[in-house]
Computed example of a mutant assay.
Amino acid sequence: MAVFRVEKTKDYTVMANHHLRNTEISLKAKGLLSLMLSLPDNWDYTTKGLSCICKDGIDSINATIKELETSGYLIRRRIRNDKGQLTTTEYTIFEKPQKLDTTDVPPKRENPILDNPMLEKPILETPIVEKPKQGEPILGNPHQLSTNTLITDLLNKEGLSIHPSNPYPSSTEPKKKMGYDEIGCNSANEVKELVLKNIEYEYIKHDHNCDQLNEIVDLMVETLCSTKDVINVSGDDYPAQLVKEKLLRINSLHIGYVFECLKKTTTYIRNIKRYLLATLFNAPSTIDNYYSALVKHDFYGAD
């Protein structure tokens, strides 16, 4: 078994064995701490200075110093000057780990006391402004004024407004004349009521097809409300007043005549509206002759 002997010389260091027997720190930390304990008190303990006497670099030494600081063998404290500025770092090395408060105490700064000077409030004087005298305006072109007066009089005589926002005459426009005005009605509803009364609608609606009867009523109301001066019937133009007078003469017998004509018609009717209007227009004039011809036919037969 090998035996190691230690021969000490006079140049040696006396230190505690605590860190050498501490199993919680690395061998590298034990060696660096032993080296730092062997140095004199006035040694400049900087990482750069330690790297000069060791084989390890600055990064390796910094990592080892942090390990010793964590274990409590080393305390670093930042030194500030009177102005509170950081100047240097102070290292305190212990042979046994210490539990000390390493929190840096921030420097105290006195708040300067600012004087509050009294400012005098200036007195503002109100300036006196003289009111300027305004003279009467002098018209440089009096003839133009007389021209405007003539134009105004002319517009008033013609009933036109001189204001640009209302360019229309002040007099109200005449109400547009409607077709039912000629027959003494005020609205289309009154015209329809008049037609229904003339043809005795409530009595004949059970004798005829209601849809066809309503179409005939609507056609009569539409024609009576027309504003045209001329109304075309069977290709011929008739005065609107004549057509309306004949339609107002239509009664229940004429409606029956129209339905009978529709029933006996065998030809194709292309425009049923024109056919109905022509039948209604001719009904007051032809109904008597039509029924007289039927009576003669029944008594005497066909010639």
Rank of each mutant, 00 (worst) to 15 (best):
K28P: 01
K99F: 05
I75H: 04
D82I: 15
E24W: 03
P40H: 08
D101H: 00
D82Y: 15
K108L: 11
D41T: 14
Q85H: 13
L100H: 01
K48W: 04
I65K: 12
I61K: 05
S34Q: 11
E69Y: 00
G57W: 09
I79W: 07
G72W: 08
R78P: 01
E95W: 01
D115I: 09
I65L: 15
I113E: 15
N111C: 02
L86R: 10
N42K: 14
K66G: 03
K96W: 01
T46Q: 12
R21A: 08
P106I: 03
I93T: 03
I25N: 03
E95M: 04
T88M: 02
K55A: 13
N111G: 02
N42Q: 06
K48M: 08
S26K: 08
I25M: 05
T87R: 02
S60R: 06
L27I: 05
L68H: 01
C54G: 00
I75T: 06
L86T: 10
L35A: 09
L86M: 07
G49R: 15
K55P: 04
G49Q: 15
E90R: 13
N42V: 05
E110I: 12
Y73N: 06
C54S: 14
E110H: 12
S71G: 01
D115Y: 02
L100R: 03
T23G: 08
D56P: 00
Y45A: 14
D44P: 05
L86D: 10
L50V: 06
L37D: 00
W43T: 13
